[in-house]
Amino acid sequence: MTTDELPPEVQQYIGRLSSFMEGPDEVNKPMIRHWCEMVEDANPLYTDEEYAKNSEYGGIISPPTMLTTWVYPRWWPPLPLDEMDPAIGPAQLDVPLGDVPFFAASSITGEYLLPMRPGDKIRYQTELHSISPFKKIRIGAGHFVTTIHYYYNQRDELVGTTEFVLFRYRMEE
């Protein structure tokens, strides 16, 4: 694993797409309001009906940064294992990269394409987008594994994406 060439058993993971996971709640005004309470966001598009109605959106929209919130899995009852897609989330950790026991979140990038409105049903799909060559950085040596979530609404429109970079590494003396 010291060359820049990734072995074929690792490469086959690249481009792998998960099935769709649907958010447990529709986009809704109370959760938007609770989100605004959290960061004290007074943007009237999120909570002021009157203002939002007269805006270009014609009504309340969700903060774009709530993308991931709309699809977080429910907390209870626990999801049955057969409903979980092994390609989601753990995929980044499944890739056989050798002796890289540690992992650290490196970055998250959101791209916000279309407004999400109360009543929208958001679902997402994950792509294992890329795996970097072996690299040494401050905290250790390993690979950056990048996954991209694609978020769609009930009209199959892509509303946004989030790119998540995870560093899988081992300590170096």
Binding site: P24, D25, E26, K29, P30, M31, R74, W75, W76, P77
Partner: peptide
């Protein structure tokens, strides 16, 4: 009430009470 009665808050409540 600051929010209309909504399915999402009902669901979150049932999650915490484990009410099926």
């Amino acid at each position: 009430a600051p929010d209309d009665v909504c399915k999402c808050m009902i669901r979150h409540y049932c999650e915490m009470m484990e009410d099926p």
